[in-house]
Simulated assay, not measured.
Amino acid sequence: MTKEEVLQLEKELSFQEFNNHAAYQLGQIIVDHIEKNHLKNVRIRIVLDGDIVFQYLMDGKKGVIWLDRKQKTVEKYGHSSYYIYLENEENKTYQDDEKDESLVICGGGFPLII
């Protein structure tokens, strides 16, 4: 996937409105999709207005530090952590952030755009 495709997904996967119940429904959709398609278990966190409104660590996943780092990366840059990763791979734009242990330059975090 290219940076442009990721940016397009960020635009397409936005919401006219979003609340705590919608977060629960979205989280459940993600869990169901992973289980139905036998994908790798993940940690899921949905944050709305600074509050964690959905969080689920699938079997075998422990701890939330990784989620904290992905969340901080998305909040700092307003883009998916995968977009930040691709940009860094191409241009070394976020090279200094690779040393920041509160951030993570890899895929997995996605902005909630309302």
Rank of each mutant, 00 (worst) to 15 (best):
M1S: 14
M1Q: 09
T2R: 15
K3W: 05
E5Q: 15
L7P: 02
L7R: 15
E10R: 11
L13H: 11
F15M: 01
F18W: 04
N19S: 07
N20H: 13
H21F: 14
Q25D: 13
L26W: 09
L26A: 06
I29S: 11
I30R: 06
V31P: 00
V31G: 04
H33D: 12
I34V: 13
E35F: 12
K36A: 13
K36N: 10
K36W: 05
K36E: 10
H38P: 00
L39F: 12
K40E: 08
N41I: 00
I44D: 09
I46Y: 07
V47T: 12
D49I: 03
G50L: 09
G50M: 08
L57H: 10
M58I: 04
M58V: 05
D59L: 02
D59R: 08
D59S: 11
G60F: 04
W66P: 05
D68T: 05
Q71D: 06
Q71K: 13
K72R: 15
E75C: 06
K76A: 10
Y77R: 06
Y77D: 01
G78C: 02
H79F: 04
S80C: 09
S80H: 08
S81F: 07
Y85A: 03
E87Y: 10
N88S: 09
N91V: 03
K92N: 09
T93D: 07
Y94D: 04
Y94N: 08
Q95F: 10
D97F: 14
D97W: 06
K99S: 08
K99R: 12
S102P: 01
L103N: 07
L103W: 13
V104W: 11
V104I: 14
V104N: 12
I105G: 07
G108M: 06
G109Q: 02
I113P: 01
I114F: 06
